[in-house]
Amino acid sequence: MGTYKLILNGKTLKGETTTEAVDAATAEKVFKQYANDNGVDGEWTYDDATKTFTVTE
């Protein structure tokens, strides 16, 4: 398990959240659902060194 971070750079929603997941693929699924639930759809990037996903609208 590891802690993964999501940085939201949406047009109307900005912020950060974290999740505990077994791997990056699992964290990505959780974060994409979170972003979708909050109406954020954009370009995704992932930094393996910091376990950080970023979505920018």
Rank of each mutant, 00 (worst) to 15 (best):
M1I: 11
M1G: 11
M1H: 10
M1E: 10
M1Q: 09
G2C: 13
G2T: 15
T3A: 08
T3F: 10
T3D: 05
T3W: 13
T3Y: 10
Y4G: 01
Y4T: 00
Y4L: 01
K5G: 03
L6R: 00
L6C: 08
I7M: 06
I7H: 05
I7F: 07
I7A: 04
I7R: 05
I7P: 00
L8C: 06
L8Q: 02
L8E: 01
L8I: 14
N9C: 12
N9K: 09
N9E: 08
N9W: 12
N9L: 15
G10D: 03
G10R: 04
G10L: 15
G10K: 04
K11W: 12
K11M: 13
K11E: 06
K11Y: 11
K11P: 10
T12K: 12
L13Y: 15
L13W: 14
L13H: 13
L13C: 13
L13V: 15
K14L: 07
K14I: 08
K14F: 08
K14H: 10
K14S: 12
K14R: 13
G15I: 15
G15M: 15
E16W: 15
E16K: 07
E16F: 13
E16R: 07
E16L: 11
E16T: 14
E16Q: 11
E16C: 13
T17V: 15
T17S: 08
T17Y: 15
T17K: 11
T17I: 15
T17N: 05
T18M: 10
T18C: 08
T18A: 08
T18P: 02
T19G: 03
T19V: 14
T19P: 01
T19A: 08
T19Y: 12
T19Q: 05
T19L: 09
T19K: 04
E20I: 14
E20A: 09
E20M: 13
E20D: 14
A21V: 04
A21L: 02
A21C: 07
A21S: 06
A21T: 05
A21P: 01
A21H: 03
V22W: 13
V22P: 15
V22F: 13
V22I: 13
V22A: 13
V22M: 13
V22G: 12
V22E: 13
D23Y: 03
D23P: 01
D23E: 04
A24V: 12
A24T: 07
A24S: 09
A24F: 12
A24E: 06
A24Y: 12
A25P: 09
A25W: 11
A25L: 10
A25K: 11
A25D: 09
T26W: 09
T26P: 02
A27S: 02
A27P: 01
A27H: 00
A27R: 00
A27Q: 00
A27D: 00
E28K: 11
E28D: 04
E28Q: 12
E28R: 10
E28A: 12
E28P: 00
E28L: 15
E28M: 15
K29D: 06
K29C: 08
K29L: 14
K29E: 09
K29H: 11
K29Q: 10
V30L: 13
V30G: 04
V30S: 06
V30P: 01
F31M: 03
F31C: 02
F31E: 00
F31D: 00
F31S: 00
K32M: 09
K32L: 08
K32Q: 08
K32N: 04
K32G: 03
K32F: 06
Q33I: 10
Q33K: 15
Q33S: 07
Q33E: 07
Q33N: 08
Q33A: 14
Y34V: 05
Y34M: 05
Y34C: 04
Y34N: 02
A35I: 05
A35G: 03
A35D: 00
N36H: 15
D37E: 12
D37M: 13
D37P: 01
D37G: 05
D37H: 08
D37C: 09
N38T: 07
N38P: 01
N38C: 10
N38Y: 13
N38D: 03
G39C: 07
G39Y: 06
V40G: 02
V40D: 02
D41P: 04
D41H: 15
D41C: 11
D41N: 11
G42E: 01
G42P: 01
G42I: 02
G42Q: 02
E43K: 12
E43W: 13
E43P: 05
E43Y: 12
E43F: 12
E43V: 14
E43H: 12
E43T: 14
W44N: 00
W44L: 03
W44H: 01
T45R: 08
T45V: 09
T45Q: 10
T45E: 07
T45K: 10
T45A: 12
Y46V: 01
Y46L: 02
Y46I: 02
Y46N: 01
D47V: 05
D47E: 07
D47C: 08
D47Q: 05
D48N: 10
D48L: 10
D48P: 14
D48I: 11
D48W: 10
D48C: 07
D48Y: 09
A49P: 08
A49C: 07
A49W: 09
A49Q: 12
A49R: 09
A49L: 13
A49G: 07
A49S: 11
T50C: 04
T50I: 06
T50D: 04
T50P: 02
K51S: 06
K51I: 02
K51R: 14
T52N: 02
T52P: 00
T52E: 04
T52H: 02
T52M: 04
T52Y: 03
T52F: 02
F53P: 00
F53S: 00
F53T: 01
F53A: 00
F53Q: 00
F53D: 00
T54G: 03
T54W: 08
T54Q: 06
T54M: 10
T54F: 07
V55E: 01
V55H: 02
V55L: 10
V55M: 05
V55N: 02
V55S: 02
T56H: 08
T56R: 06
E57K: 04
E57R: 03
E57A: 07
E57M: 08
E57N: 05
E57C: 05
E57Y: 11
